[in-house]
Amino acid sequence: MEFITLVGRVFVHFFEAAGRLGIFTSKTIYHCFTPPFYFKQILSQIIQIGFFSLPVVALTTLFAGMVIALQTYTGFARFSAEGAVSMVVLVAVTRELAPVMAGLMVAGRIGAAMAAEIGTMRVTEQIDALSTLSTNPFKYLIAPRVIAGILMLPVLVLIGDIIGIYGGYLIGVYKLDFNATSYLVNTWDFMKPMDIISGLVKASVFGFIITLLGCYNGFNSKGGAQGVGAATTNAVVSASILILIFNYILTELFFNT
């Protein structure tokens, strides 16, 4: 009997949390599309997410491109298919590596920062203060972050695509002795708009997930420093898991239907 009670309690908590997140999501979407828009806040978040995340995204995609070129070469050399390296680098980077790596990096950097900042504002009553100053916290705090996330992740991924492909080129030309021109021509010839577009759409979805969960966990944090710490951890962990789940779902939608 106790076991059934426990299972029941877990289910109730799960649906309660899902419902709360659902309401938060619908409120966020509503406030993203209705005025007033706080353009200064949106611009500030665009700089935070886009500009300051650029170095970490550039580094991770560069090395991801490099390692995929190296691994593909060692694998494909067994079948004398070394010529496909540039194509594999292109597909792997644009479709999967750049969006997922950028998403995970931004989740760690921005999702955590958002949860900590909004969580601190919650426990120090700054969010209540916003309401008493006739400012809707959803419009002022949440919507600008989510809008900036949706807009900036694709930009980061596009830059990550270029840097990742360049990483593969560096390994191909300087380590594996491919001809530079033929590597670039091969890459260009194999490139399909859908490879790039699918990565950018994924990036937008990941941007929404990261900012939404960062804001949600911060907004609902309780109990002082410990609560803010827990909110930060939850924001990063839940965003990372959802990025990987949605990456699979979007890949299915784009390429397997």
Binding site: M121, E125, Q126, A129
Partner: peptide, 9 residues
């Protein structure tokens, strides 16, 4: 409203 901890931004 004056908050307990001032709640300054």
């Amino acid at each position: 409203m004056l908050f307990q901890g001032a709640a300054l931004f």
